[in-house]
Design a protein around this nucleic acid. Structure first.
Length: 574
RNA sequence: CGGGGAGUAGCGCAGCUCGGCAGCGCACCUGCUUUGGGAGCAGGAGGCCGGGGGUUCAAAUCCCCCCUCCCCGACCA
């Protein structure tokens, strides 16, 4: 491609509002342009990268036995009502009506559609397993789109759905997908980590999230340096067990703590560390009040609490709720508050201890509250949010926490959708069963964000070879003298020779200064840069520079570079 | 949705308090010079100042309403 004809305008200045490297560089390099909040156009350079990522995903999915198809983006709302996910998704769905006021939505995902289609096509155990995928645009009306492609409202996703006779068979495909995903992200040159994940709106059981490790990531990843334990912070747990023992503490004593509803203030006022305080978090439990107890220097992990009380639903009390429960005094809650349906505590609270905690009375706390003497715990469960240094639940070694970008997820779905939508198969004995399903997503456009975050420098992007929009960036510097036309002729010939050898070349034939051309080459990030200039040609060489490492070398162009076989040329250049 | 900020040329911004010819840098066009890391000089083109209403002799500027975009938070396959 000759740059003189390419639809590309690079930006010299940073665009306003692009705060992370990937967003800034993708805009500056002319890969994307914003059209609306969280909605982007893909310009030719970006389109090529998008296509390359999609192709990698396609190759690995096909190799793993999945079959590609395409489903509509417009989906009838009725399907979503059949699985109740219409309500689960709520305002996250883009909704629309046609001229007859029939209700539709734009696809945020496609479990309902694929399950309905499969229900009509597959009927026998002989037809299973089946694994189907598509690469298509998805839509979510995010509360707050941000960071360019990272949290967009329109994004390209590969979504796959597998159908099985039983869970054992599902597990085989699940593992195949897990392995395929590892190959995809390795080929994309991402530093990634598969972690135990959170179920979200899809619902289901076992699942793993593939996290590209990046400081701008929106998820916290808890991982162990010794063993292979890794989990999204929402589901991560620390090694913890309740201990038996009597606290050797004096009698409980009420203390005056005026206007101190917070842990920090009370700890300072009484001169004790925050960890000596007992934090009591009130939550609504299907209309009743529950208390969650953790040490004062710890936070309750809401996802852990939700799991602990399931299938009931826990919701932290809002300010308004406290009015309805006068015995629960916000800021001064004690574990022995009246009319509490459930007291649930993290095992850390079982340490023999005289706790400082709320007195259930405004402006008062108590000292020396002792478990078993002054308050009781109804249920024990891991509730605290993990912090770095906590013991690994598997091996006890210290845990670390880093940020990650979720680029893929694999789920064991079970029969939620097949039951709701009637995807049944007949077994050998003639009996009907719901198909057991799995689903598997990869954020194609989001991968590009993660890749640029990991592969860039001050000058611009440094694409990994497999994703680069072009293989070679050929720069011609004609110079001023009589030899200028000869230099251009040589560059033209090299361009043609490379193209004939099957190399994708971006040829900077523009009438621009060398500085502009080199700066754009660095910004665009094509892995190999070849420079044809009068300076080099005097010695019969073209210069070769690698974008990633800056490593420079020279290629002799005398007799044969333009006449060698395609294979030899490829080897010499790439 | 709560809090904060911004809409002025393709991009980045000034002008707004205190109403009076719509500006600067980069980019773009023409010419000359230049040519190995974002060239110089000269000339030029490009604006619904987010939209609507109001005040005024006069509105980018003041008032009211609306829209859009960005940042923090809540939320999140």
């Amino acid at each position: 491609m000759r740059m003189s004809r390419l639809f590309l305008r690079t930006l010299r200045d940073d665009p306003a509002g692009a705060d992370i490297a990937s967003h800034r560089l993708l805009l500056r390099a002319g890969c994307i342009r914003q059209v609306a909040s969280g909605v982007y156009a893909w310009l030719p350079i970006g389109q090529r990268v998008l296509a390359k990522v999609a192709q990698i995903v396609r190759e690995e999915m096909d190799a793993a036995g999945a079959q590609e198809m395409t489903m509509p983006i417009v989906q009838p709302r009725e399907l979503w009502e059949q699985t109740k996910r219409d309500v689960d998704y709520g305002p996250l769905m883009f909704r629309l009506e046609d001229r007859k006021q029939a209700r539709y939505n734009l696809s945020p995902t496609a479990e309902e559609v694929i399950t309905t289609i499969v229900a009509g096509e597959l009927e026998s155990y002989r037809d299973l397993p089946m694994n189907l995928y598509q690469i298509n645009w998805k839509y979510r009306d995010e509360l707050r789109p941000r960071f360019g492609l990272l949290r967009a409202r329109e994004f390209l996703m590969k979504d796959a759905y597998s159908f099985h006779i039983d869970v054992d068979d599902l597990k085989r495909t699940y593992q195949d997908m897990y392995d395929a995903y590892s190959r995809v992200f390795t080929r994309c040159a991402l530093t990634f980590r598969p972690v135990e994940g959170e179920a979200g709106e899809i619902g289901g059981d076992t699942n793993h999230e593939f996290m590209a490790m990046a400081a701008v990531g929106e998820d916290d990843v808890v991982w162990c340096q010794k063993c292979d334990y890794a989990a999204n912070a929402e589901v991560a747990r620390r090694k913890s067990e309740t201990v038996d023992g009597k606290a050797d503490a004096p009698a409980r004593e009420k203390v005056h703590t005026p206007d101190m509803p917070g842990i920090t203030a009370v700890a300072e006022h009484l001169g004790v560390p925050a960890g000596e305080l007992l934090k009591c978090i009130a939550f609504d439990l299907d209309g009743e009040v529950g208390l969650a107890l953790v040490p004062g220097d710890r936070d309750v992990n809401p996802a852990a609490l939700a799991q602990a009380v399931a299938p009931k639903r826990a919701r932290l009390l809002a300010d308004d709720d406290f009015a309805a429960h006068p015995h629960v005094v916000k800021g001064y809650i004690g574990p022995d508050a009246e009319s509490v349906a459930l007291v649930i505590a993290d095992p850390m609270v079982s340490a023999p201890h005289g706790w400082v905690t709320g007195a259930n009375e405004i402006d008062h706390h108590v000292r020396s509250a002792v478990l078993g003497r002054d308050f009781e715990v109804g249920e024990w469960a891991d509730l605290v949010a993990v912090v770095p240094g906590d013991p690994c639940p598997r091996c006890g070694s210290p845990l670390s926490i880093d940020r990650g970008i979720e680029v893929g997820q694999v789920f064991e779905l079970g029969t939620k959708y097949s039951e709701a939508l009637g995807a049944l198969y007949t077994d050998e004995a003639g009996a009907q069963h719901p198909m057991v399903m799995g689903c598997y997503g990869i954020g194609i456009s989001r991968i590009i964000t993660a890749v640029v975050e990991e592969h860039h420098d001050e000058q611009g992007i440094a694409w990994p070879a497999e994703l680069a929009p072009y293989d070679v960036h050929l720069v011609v510097i004609p110079g001023k003298g009589d030899e200028a036309s000869e230099v251009i002729k040589t560059a033209d010939e090299l361009y043609d020779a490379l193209a004939n050898a099957g190399v994708d070349v971006l040829y900077d034939d523009r009438d621009a200064s060398p500085g502009v051309k080199f700066a754009d080459a660095d910004l665009l990030g094509v892995p190999v840069r070849l420079t044809v200039g009068a300076k080099g040609l005097k010695r019969d060489v073209v210069e070769r520079k690698l974008r990633k490492t800056g490593e420079e070398s020279e290629l002799q162009i005398t007799d044969d570079l333009l006449t060698v076989s395609a294979e030899e040329l490829r080897t010499a250049v790439l």
